[in-house]
């Protein structure tokens, strides 16, 4: 009995290291998927939530094909910093927010107008660093989803670009299409179809580092990487990674709560957090190494060009 106790203590002592495990350099993996791509989500009814409530979105809209990447976010930070719409303070990217309506509900926090945290670039967990007043992405992480972004930061990015964060219902329609599937790609899940709690071993081997966390956006597209055959995880409208990799902020600010909501699950989660009705929430100033976002925008039908025939 004493030996067992001693052994347990040794294991506990050895295993309890709390040093951040940060991969600063990995091999770049080209997935062939363009992070600048958008997909159209057509207007119409769809089944919303676990109980398949029929809901209508009566307009077409577009959503990003992938999460916003580190490269895209770093370029935005540099541009926004130059323009003065964000500023740096104590290792953080900060920016102004006009404030939220306050309903005085139990547990609701006041979010008054002021400057709020967008991106804590000096904290471990992200792959963007400030070097000589320029935001630079760690090598190999250019096409990984940006993480450690607060809701304020995600919204500021979308505003800066002329986009918006998708509403929950928009996100759900983009993830599920018009049927009753459980995951964006169908009803099954495996380590080869998305980056979630159970796929870490395969990713660690391929992407290097002690702990592989995020995967490049669009990584699961049916390509073979070495011996690792992925399955295509596109949702019915063609968006990649709507389940897994990193959580995605959505835009809604509901009455009676200060929380903002997150969808899609992440590399730290079990499969049930990846269901299309799975939902997480946190304050708008919350950030973590498994939280990112993607944007939406209104769909404008291209005007057909008239053909003029000269006689």
């Amino acid at each position: 009995m004493k030996k067992i106790l001693l052994l347990s203590l040794i294991i506990a002592f050895y295993g309890c290291s709390t040093e951040p495990i940060v991969n600063t350099e990995i091999e770049f993996v080209n997935t062939g998927v363009d992070p600048n791509g958008w997909v159209i989500v057509p207007a119409g009814i769809f089944n919303y939530g676990m109980h398949n409530k029929v809901v209508e979105i009566n307009y077409d809209f577009e959503i990003m094909q992938t999460h916003v990447t580190n490269q895209q976010f770093a370029e935005y930070l540099n541009a926004a910093l130059a323009k003065g719409s964000i500023f740096l303070e104590n290792g953080n990217v900060m920016g102004a927010h006009p404030g939220d309506p306050f309903d005085g509900y139990l547990h609701e926090w006041k979010i008054p107008a002021g400057n709020y945290l967008h991106f804590p670039y000096s904290k471990p967990g992200g792959q963007i660093k400030l070097i000589e007043n320029k935001f630079v992405v760690d090598k190999g992480f250019e096409n990984h989803p940006v993480v450690m972004v607060t809701w304020f930061g995600a919204k500021a990015y979308a505003d800066f670009k002329g986009y918006r964060l998708p509403l929950e219902k928009e996100w759900a329609k983009a993830a599920r299409g018009t049927d009753t599937r459980a995951y964006p790609w169908g009803d099954h899940i495996s380590a080869n179809i998305t980056n979630y709690g159970s796929s870490k071993n395969a990713l660690q081997k391929l992407l290097g580092g002690n702990i592989a966390r995020t995967a490049p956006v669009g990584y699961y597209n049916g390509n073979k990487y070495g011996d690792y055959q992925t399955e295509d995880n596109r949702s019915p409208c063609g968006a990649y990674d709507m389940g897994g990799n990193v959580w995605q902020w959505v835009g809604d600010d509901y009455p009676d709560v200060h929380y903002r909501y997150l969808r899609g699950g992440s590399f730290t989660n079990y499969e049930y957090d990846l269901f299309v009705w799975g939902r997480n929430s946190a304050g708008p100033d919350y950030y973590d190494f498994n939280i990112g976002f993607r944007c939406a925008r209104d769909f404008v039908k291209p005007i057909p060009t008239e053909t003029i025939t000269l006689e």
Binding site: I11, E19, P124, T268, D288, F289
Partner: peptide, 17 residues
């Protein structure tokens, strides 16, 4: 351990125990 990025060691140990 406030930062998720540093929780792996603690998680491994508690899961083993």
């Amino acid at each position: 351990v406030p930062e998720s990025v540093a929780q792996q060691g603690l998680m491994n140990t508690t899961m083993i125990l």
